[in-house]
Amino acid sequence: MLEFVVRGLLLGSVLGILALPMGLLFTTVRTIDFAVGAYALLAAAVAAAVPGLPGLAAGLLCAVGAAGVMGSLYLLLRRFGCEDAIVPALMSFGLAVAIASLVLLIWGTQPFLREGFSTFLSIAGLRISPQGLVDLAIELGIVATLQAVLHRTDLGRMMRATAANPAGAALAAIPVEALQFATFAAGGLLAGVAGLLIMYSSGLDFTAPLGLTLSGFGASIIFGIGSPLRAMLGGFAMGTAEALGAGYSSGMVAGMVPFAFVLIVLATTRFGEHGLAGDRL
């Protein structure tokens, strides 16, 4: 069983990375970007097409670019006077569908996979995937960087101010729109990294985006959507549950885990609850 847990933790590293954009975006912009999974797909698709390191860079660039499109759309919507949280989310949904279709058009139904490590390591009698260790290391690095940026830099201070009170932040000469755009773009980068990591392990195809988005969302809300640390822990929790499910039950049950998590957490926590006075969250 320990092996399952370890496998789950390593699996959960990537989920944690996917959870980060969800949390960042929700706290700063109060909406969900459904296209996060699509950015991951795009990164993997481009990287699989272009060999070597340039491929990775190109993949990340495309992911950030796509996220930038979403960021611009969001700002445009605000300019047109739309204060609703649902419309940008719906729009990101359309973008996700469009990106998946684009990938399908250009590259077809093949999965995007790159050869990673061919052998498993054996540590303390457990089979451990070296790719998993790489994922974990990368995630820890990202989370540490994010925490440092958010809490120790001016940029982070401005982001937290914008999240708490956008109107007030604007009055304090904080470039709110630029920050919001940057948050979207950062989400694209993070999703791109996740997509590349998945490409090196199980691979992904054009049907992946929505599942990835939901998994990332599920991981982000388990322990509360507030901080990168919680997103990381949420990823571990979900990954472990999936691995245990796959190990002790069936693949079907493992596949259900992220979605069941989402439903259970939403049904039992206060996430997104309406205040009785009708305030929208």
């Binding site: 649902i86 599942g211 939901l214 259900m256 049904a267 997104g272």
Partner: peptide, 29 residues
């Protein structure tokens, strides 16, 4: 009934999760 106190965004995600669950169950059972 379980989720309706949630904001529309959260409800959307819940229905997406339900849809995906149904997909999986129909495929796997």
């Amino acid at each position: 009934r379980a989720l309706i106190r949630l904001s529309p965004l959260a409800t959307a995600l819940a229905t997406l999760a339900l849809g995906s669950l149904v997909d999986i169950v129909l495929r796997g059972w």
